[in-house]
């Protein structure tokens, strides 16, 4: 066994199923989040992301399956959620409370000592840029401000695991950037993060791993870069656009078509071509050498490769589940 497979899991979900009458929101879902991992949970609307997170945090009772949080059964809610902070589905705080009062309530439930409550409250409010409004009533805040207070409440007890359901929802662009910065800082501190999001950029830039679900089933799961790379390899989804200074000769064109890994060849102009390429990096470098050998003087070679967006669209096309 490798060290990686021996690493303890922060969240271990096996066979999770949640049905509401005849409708199955989550269907035998398996998902593992390792300690220190930053996992993104992706999926279209109605895929079962929120239901999965709610099952972990005790907001819904699973129909079947097991969920272990830090090795503790999630049904033992008090113990399982002891070192977990979460923000699920834009929770509201008590309207007549101030952020300070809200954090006091949350902190006491977590067992934050009175001595440290004021210190921690200040720290987390500063982190989410809400310290200035600590004595104002939450009822006066905008949605984004309330979201930030909720994030502060999740961070207050120094959790080991943080679960966020669309954390940047309702925030303006600056707020989104700052929340992402906060999450990166937490990742660097070795915390385990699980976020569900629609924003693919958040997953590709911040997450180390991802799980994509659709119609309650896991479609794909693993390291983000590895998944994208594998998809690019298998789907031949790299497109090369080549422009040369000189007019391309028929000999050059036939040589390119004959190269390994070239398909869907298209001449887009006298001095430009486009084709799909699924060869290795060495074979791609051979194409550059070919341009030079034909003395065409390479102007540009643009690669539009696979990205998370293409992977997402491919795996959730037509609303069908493409299970891999």
């Amino acid at each position: 066994m490798t060290e990686e497979s021996d690493a303890p899991l922060a969240i271990d979900i096996k066979g999770l199923t949640k049905s509401y009458g005849s409708f199955t929101a989550v269907d035998s879902l398996d998902m593992q989040v390792g300690k220190g991992e930053f996992m993104g949970l992706l999926g279209p609307n109605g895929a079962g992301k929120s239901t999965t997170l709610k099952s972990i945090t005790g907001l819904v009772r699973p129909t079947s399956g097991t969920i272990l949080v830090n090795g503790i059964d999630a049904r033992n809610h008090r113990k399982a959620m002891t070192h977990v902070g979460c923000v699920i589905e834009t929770p509201e705080c008590y309207q007549n409370f101030t952020p300070g009062e809200m954090l006091s309530y949350v902190g006491k439930i977590h067992g934050v000592t009175n001595r440290e409550l004021a210190i921690r409250a200040r720290d987390v409010l500063e982190e989410v840029r809400m310290w200035e409004w600590r004595d104002k009533h939450i009822g006066q805040f905008s949605k984004g401000m309330r979201q930030r207070v909720a994030i502060a409440a999740a961070l207050l007890p120094n959790p080991e695991i943080i679960i966020l359901d669309e954390p940047t929802s309702g925030l303006d662009p600056r707020g989104m950037i700052e929340v992402r910065e906060t999450l990166r800082n937490l990742k660097e501190r070795g915390l385990t993060l699980l976020i569900s999001t629609h924003i693919l950029k958040e997953v590709s830039e911040m997450c180390t791993s991802m799980t994509m679900i659709n119609r309650g089933k896991t479609i794909i799961s693993g390291d983000v870069n590895t998944l994208i790379h594998n998809m690019a390899q298998s789907e031949r989804s790299i497109t090369l656009d080549i422009r040369t200074l000189s007019v391309m000769t028929p000999a050059f064109l036939s040589d390119v078509k004959a190269m390994t890994g070239v398909s869907n060849f298209e001449r887009t102009g006298e001095k430009s071509i486009r084709f799909s390429f699924f060869g290795s990096d060495e074979e791609q470098a051979d194409i550059v050498d070919l341009v030079a050998s034909h003395k065409l003087r390479l102007l540009s070679m643009n690669e539009t490769g696979a990205d998370l967006e293409k992977l997402y669209m491919k795996l959730t096309e037509d609303g069908e589940v493409n299970v891999r």
């Binding site: 008090r78 113990k79 002891t82 070192h83 006491k108 439930i109 977590h110 067992g111 934050v112 000592t113 440290e116 210190i119 921690r120 200040r122 720290d123 500063e126 982190e127 840029r129 310290w131 200035e132 409004w133 104002k136 006066q140 805040f141 905008s142 984004g144 401000m145 007890p157 120094n158 303006d172 600056r174 707020g175 700052e178 501190r189």
Partner: peptide
């Protein structure tokens, strides 16, 4: 109340802010 961000930086060090404290549920 303007939904503007204040520019306050975090005023406490890592230790002062008790960021490593572990709490047990009452």
């Amino acid at each position: 109340i303007e939904d503007a961000y204040d520019e306050s930086e975090r005023t406490m060090s890592h230790d002062e802010a008790c960021r490593d404290s572990v709490y047990s549920t009452p």
